[in-house]
Design a protein around this nucleic acid. Structure first.
Length: 693
DNA sequence: GGGAATAAGATAC
DNA sequence: TTCCAGTATCTTATTCCC
């Protein structure tokens, strides 16, 4: 039974959650993800159907052998205790404000709640639920803001107690820990149940909080056990093989740490597996259709085998900070947010005494929006493309960094290379095709814990080692000009002494500018430059001493021109060779780069009917016609963009790909990723559980 | 082929 | 009214260089 779920009207909860979230971007995104999952399940079913009797027999033999091997590793010599604090954050808040006792309360805000007390859970309010939905479920719900300082304090109190029972206990989070109580049981001549009881009592005395405990021969099982008599209870699974097998056989797979919603769905719908016993019975099938490590995990789980060793101190591998905000494409704001995040990250780095050399920028983009002021345009329905997308861009530096200045410096370069996020076609009254940012995050990894703060010289070769000095075809991110940074960005880019470069396949993009690359638009928009300035800027970017690159540019550009002509797309790059009229227009409008009816293949049939969609618009609707044309172009570019996006993933790679198309490059073909319809790999789902349990 | 770097996707709390 | 977080970890896949 789920803790605190007694008396919950599940149907009512589901209906309210559905009605409240229906139509939101999040909801649409979830639906897309579910559709994708269904497709993957179908693929797995199809693969299963292809297996012959001989195949099945072969894999069953493999599974049987593996089961024997795993059985041989079963260790029943240790006693593990998993402690889980009951509704930790909420309980701490109630402790510091007793008037909350007995009232439905949640810790968090309107956008997200972290924990709900048991009174609130009876209304269906859960952790990781948006506050506004929680309030719909329970209008009298009291919201308490998160106060990590408080929780950390109480967490430390619990850890002092844990230490008495196992000095090497493993903290899984602020409110969870694993303890090996084998020795303490022996030393004090107490049963594991008695020790668990005493520990829980001690925690309650020290903190005033209650917790639940699970005792079992390994961590995987101990975790499952601590959930059984929650809250303020415990469950003991004795160290006996039969007891373990009986316990595990009827256990729903979802109760196992590492089997989440997706895995449960796959196992249930593709293989009819809902319990661990069924998982064991269908071991052959699992060996046939999953990777070795995944099948291994499934089999060991179904035998109730988990980790029993106390792992070496595992040091942290990365540290990150991210913030979500309301969707925006305001670059000044984005840089400001980035600066804030860099500050936060720096503070955390200093707290942990860490320095890292790989910086990763994470961007969450919102869907295309189609806003139009003209009612005529609203006659068309443009389905949103990708609803929410996460991009990450990383760079590995030669030196270790931890200061907010350094973090911001390199983070700004990464962000700059991504901007503008939006593919904008600004008409006078309309605003089409727009990506805006929902969140930014920064992560630092590759720590140098031995030499904190000091610039060091890692023995590993970095990409920088391969950059030939003076090879300007490789655009160095230390050169603000090479990224099209304007004066306003300079405040973010001082102290440019650090070496910072990017991979060669990406560099092509910088050396040879893609006429369709939005960064070009950025140059035009941000610099407010004239055509001449633009060409000058272009010259700076180009490898003046690199004849080969010059040739490539010519060839690629020519390829692009002919391609564009064939496809009927306009070519912003043509500005540099094209008609003076168009150049003037860019100088004047500074934004309507793409405007041209002919270029997107649109013709006004009989002078009033759009050849592409049939909408009728009289000749004197000048502006409307122009915008209508832009609209078709936006649609086309988006299709282009999403097609490229599904094949490659980064704008840089897209650009490179385009270059390759035109230059007939012999670059290797990429294997389809799982995203592109390949076999679903869920190894990663279990990596952590394998590690932890 | 191996190692390193990069990018994306997924899980858990 | 509000309209779905933040942090850490791991795997897979790809590309490049040695």
């Amino acid at each position: 039974m789920f803790l605190g779920m007694e008396g919950v009207d599940k149907e009512k909860v589901q209906r309210i959650v559905y009605e409240t979230s229906k139509g939101s971007k999040y909801f649409e995104n979830e639906e897309k993800k579910e559709a994708l999952l269904r497709q993957k399940i179908e693929n797995m079913r199809a693969q299963r159907a292809k297996l012959s009797a001989a195949d099945l027999s072969h894999y069953q033999t493999l599974a049987d052998r593996r089961i024997l091997e795993l059985e041989a590793t079963r260790d029943l010599s240790r006693i593990w205790l998993h402690v889980d604090m009951d509704a930790f954050y909420a309980a701490v808040e109630t402790l510091s404000n007793p008037s909350l006792k007995g009232k439905p309360m949640a810790v968090g805000g309107m956008s997200m709640i972290s924990t709900a007390n048991y009174e609130a859970r009876r209304f269906g309010v859960r952790a990781a639920m948006p506050g506004f939905i929680a309030r719909k479920l329970c209008p009298e719900l009291i919201f308490v803001p998160i106060d990590f300082k408080k929780y950390t304090h109480y967490s430390e109190l619990t850890r002092k107690v844990f230490e008495k029972y196992d000095p090497n206990f493993m903290a899984a989070s602020l409110d969870e820990a694993y303890l090996d109580i084998t020795e303490v049981c022996k030393e004090r001549g107490m049963s594991c149940g008695e020790i668990a009881e005493e520990l829980r009592k001690c925690i309650n005395e020290e903190t005033g909080l209650t917790c639940s405990a699970g005792v079992a021969p390994n961590r995987l099982l101990a975790k499952v056990c601590s959930d059984i008599n929650k809250p303020n209870g415990q469950f003991v699974l004795i160290n006996d093989r039969m007891a373990v097998m009986t316990f595990i056989s009827s256990l729903p797979i979802r109760k196992i740490g590492g089997i989440g919603k997706v895995t449960e769905h796959i196992l249930r719908d593709a293989f009819g597996i809902s319990t661990c016993e069924e998982m064991l019975q269908k071991g052959g099938l699992l060996c046939a259709l999953f990777s070795h490590s995944t099948a291994d995990f499934f089999l060991s789980v179904s035998l109730g085998i988990g980790k029993t060793d106390t792992p070496q101190v595992r040091s942290r591998k990365s540290i990150s900070s991210e913030r979500t905000f309301s969707a925006t494409d305001d670059e000044t704001l984005l840089y400001q947010k980035l600066a804030d995040i860099a500050e936060m990250l720096c503070a955390d780095m200093k707290k942990g005494g860490l320095c890292g050399r790989t910086l990763t920028l994470k961007l969450k983009t919102a869907s295309f929006e189609f806003l139009a002021s003209l009612h005529l345009l609203l006659a068309f329905h443009f389905p949103a493309e990708d609803v929410i997308k996460v991009r990450s861009r990383a760079v590995t530096l030669e030196k270790y960094i931890c200061s907010s200045e350094d973090i911001l410096k390199y983070a700004s370069k990464l962000l700059k290379a991504e901007l503008p996020i939006s593919l904008r076609l600004m008409g006078k009254n309309s605003h089409y095709g727009l990506y805006s940012l929902l969140s930014e995050g920064l992560r630092l990894s590759h720590f140098n814990e031995d030499n904190i703060g000091a610039p060091s010289d890692p023995t590993q070769k970095t990409l920088n080692n391969f950059i030939v000095p003076g090879d300007l075809s490789r655009k160095n991110l230390d050169d603000p000009k090479s990224l099209g940074l304007d004066i306003n960005d300079q405040h973010l880019m001082n102290n440019m002494e650090g070496s910072f470069s990017i991979e060669s396949h990406e560099l092509q993009h910088y050396g040879i500018r893609d006429p369709l690359d939005s960064n070009n638009l950025q140059d035009l928009n941000v610099h407010h430059c004239t055509y001449t300035d633009s060409v000058e800027a272009e010259k700076i970017h180009e490898p003046s001493s690199n004849k080969i690159a010059d040739k490539v540019i010519t060839k690629d550009m020519a390829g692009e021109v002919s391609q564009r002509k064939e496809s009927g797309l306009s070519l912003p790059g043509q500005l540099e060779w094209g008609s003076p009229d168009r150049m003037n227009r860019v100088i004047m409008d500074n934004e309507a780069v793409f405007s041209s009816e002919q270029k997107d293949g649109l013709v006004w049939v009989d002078d009033y009917k759009c050849s592409l969609c049939g909408i009728e618009m009289p000749p004197y609707f000048d502006e409307e016609r122009q915008e209508h044309s832009d609209f078709h172009l936006a649609e086309r570019l988006q299709k282009d963009e999403s097609r490229m996006d599904s094949r490659t993933s980064t704008p840089r790679q897209r650009s490179v790909q385009k270059d390759h198309i035109s230059s007939q490059s012999k670059r290797k073909k990429r294997k389809p990723s799982p995203k592109e319809g390949g076999h679903l790999s869920i190894d990663m789902f279990f990596a952590r559980s394998n590690q932890n349990f």
